[in-house]
Design a protein around this nucleic acid. Sequence first.
DNA 1: TCAATAGTTTAGAATTACTCTAAACTATTT
DNA 2: AAATAGTTTAGAGTAATTCTAAACTATTGA
Lengths: 139, 139
Amino acid sequence: MGKAERDNGKAIQRLRGVGLRPTRQRVELAGVLFKGEDRHVTAESLYEEASQQGLRISLATVYNTLHQFTHAGLLRQVVVDAARGYFDTNTGDHQHFFLEDEGALIDIPGDQISVAGVPTPPAGLTVDRVDVVVRVKRA
Amino acid sequence: MGKAERDNGKAIQRLRGVGLRPTRQRVELAGVLFKGEDRHVTAESLYEEASQQGLRISLATVYNTLHQFTHAGLLRQVVVDAARGYFDTNTGDHQHFFLEDEGALIDIPGDQISVAGVPTPPAGLTVDRVDVVVRVKRA
DNA sequence: TCAATAGTTTAGAATTACTCTAAACTATTT
DNA sequence: AAATAGTTTAGAGTAATTCTAAACTATTGA
């Protein structure tokens, strides 16, 4: 059994674990997303990357899959740019630098940054998440 | 001199102060935006509000004006939703609750919330702004 | 005061990111 | 291996926003 197959095996387990049927497209995208280090992608960037690797997959499926992975807790959506949606393979507690000039994201570990003094939300509402975005640009 | 004229006078001064030619459209939108309390608008919501007040203005001009006001420091853009852009008349130091169910924003005073431990940005970059978004939903 | 000019507005077309539809396809179940 | 339940896809559709270029208006300078 080659390396590719082992990796595929892992992706398949992961998908089954969250109740997603391991179709070719999902397994391949999981392979691209979760192979190495944590990363940030947009639907378009992932579609291009997959296409360049020779994976046959439609853009609509990339969108579907990103949302399914997000609902399943495999990805997290990051809102930093009104123009496009970013997805992060790091679903743990952390925050982001956003490089406005390039549209790139860099993780900030969750134990490094701390937010104090968040007021109680209006009645009937609960805090879902506290997002911190450190917007940086060329000096 | 009636109230409307005084208000217009103020809006005109304000626009000249930031180097924007006080056209009818800009003066009228400034009137709507800066008349009372701080507020959050989208291009579409401002366009509808202006239209209902009988102001003749195109949607394209509302978009242009929101961006010009933002560059001039009269407004601040708030990115909380990948689907639409929000503009805030409060340009001071503060943060936001975002009510995910309704798409509404509520200000959190800047002296109430504090962010510690923001790491030094990568070389060649400086911090433009630190945004905190407290996402809340129905309990 | 009034033309010249420089900047502004606008309708409508264009663009971008994303979603929808329904027919073809595939994983799973029986 | 057929039935079924879920998935993928091309292409159309949508929503927010930007672009274009012609008409318009505020400002400038004589």
